[in-house]
Nucleic acid binder design. Structure first.
Lengths: 215, 215
DNA sequence: GCCCACCACCGTGTTTTCACCCTTTTTCAA
DNA sequence: TTGAAAAAGGGTGAAAACACGGTGGTGGGC
């Protein structure tokens, strides 16, 4: 049977999941609270076949950790485990190297199917994932193929987005970030365009759906 | 050993939790996806000692379900299980009749302690809960004791709050809700006051933290 | 060198949001 | 039945948010 490692910051759920995975017959090698702890615990003796990886975690998130794994231990398959089914997370996670993506409200049978598929076929794409991917491709056509926009924000934009989720005015955010209010206007307009929103509320909703800010 | 029922809409996590609870030695009588399903499955033969209840669920949420249980089967103890540690949820849940409140990222040992305490002592208040309660009491003093404000919003306010989390302007929201824009201004100002926020972003963050809108 | 992308910055004008203070209608309880 | 609240609608003005069209500097590629 394929061996498993769990990475999730919700201790109770992770432990429960470990029990479930074991009851399905897969040995759980170890568990970790976040990407950093995972990497520390990982060595040649503890290499699993599959890593069940949460996306939103403190310290080192699922995207980063999956990318690191792809670079350092490409034989280890990552199965992303998320609360949400938003398109950006799915695409970013697959781009980072994940071999599959399942929601936390799936049935145990789907988890088993996903683990088996990742091990035997090398990937697991549920209808949900396929659907989102197709939708993303269609959107690309509409926009002339600017894939980068869906994927990543730079440092400054991420910082700004966090501040945008507070009750600060743009002027106050400008002070906090040591730039002029006009520059903040620029960040805002760039994000409006990239994220396809029109208002600050749109920014906030995006930030939350994508784990840029933790609720 | 006390018997347990689990109510949570995240199937994978709920199943895992069930395994965990059973491995701690507590029999799990049944599981449910939400409050509605829970009530349908409940009868004199399936009465548990403790219900582990998620807060944010579709159809019938944790508050409603706990209140119903308090009215119909007061002997069943509810232990609230939440992602978030925000004050309002804790207070509302305890007001609804929950005997304890633990976070999903607690250690399994705390879950065990909580279940045991709820059964033997009738309640379980962690340091987190106590701390939040004390903070809430202090806030009350500052405001002259307006407890109702923390607890519940009426129908119209809830509707408005949902719309406020979209990119609609207040004018558009007014159209949707069949009232004049001025009335919307009124809803908004009332919520600013009740929720102690100053901007629409504040409303959005409140709505998300309290599960008024689902992310 | 030159072009290009990217970042920070700037000005102007419109729309939306928010604060403050007001009237009318409905409701409900003393 | 009166009168005190609560809910709805209203006006004005200032502040913030948003749209649009710009400038100059920096650091690659070629």
């Amino acid at each position: 049977m394929p061996s498993i490692v769990l990475v999730d910051d919700h201790s109770l759920l992770r432990t429960g999941l470990a029990q479930l995975v074991q009851s399905l017959g897969y040995p759980v090698i170890f568990e970790a609270d976040d990407g950093k702890e995972f990497i520390e615990k990982l060595n040649d003796k503890t290499l699993p076949d599959v890593v069940l990886m949460d996306i939103n975690m403190p310290l080192m998130d699922g995207f980063e950790t999956t990318r690191w794994l792809k670079d350092n231990y490409p034989s280890v398959k990552v199965l992303a485990l998320s609360m949400y089914d938003n398109e950006n997370s799915i695409i970013r996670m697959l781009k980072s190297g994940a071999k599959g993506y399942i929601l936390k409200d799936s049935e145990p049978a789907e988890l088993k199917a996903a683990i088996d598929a990742v091990v035997s076929k090398g990937y697991y794409y549920s209808d949900l994932v396929s659907g989102k991917l197709i939708h993303a491709i269609n959107k690309l056509d509409d926009e002339g193929g600017e894939l980068k926009n869906i994927l990543q924000l730079n440092e400054r934009e991420t910082d700004f987005l966090k501040y945008a989720c507070t009750e600060m005015t743009y002027k106050e955010i400008a002070d906090k970030m040591f730039v002029s209010p006009r520059t903040i206007d620029g960040y805002r307009d760039a994000l409006f365009e990239k994220l396809h929103v029109k208002t600050r509320v749109g920014l906030v909703m995006y930030a939350i759906k994508n784990g840029v800010v933790s609720v």
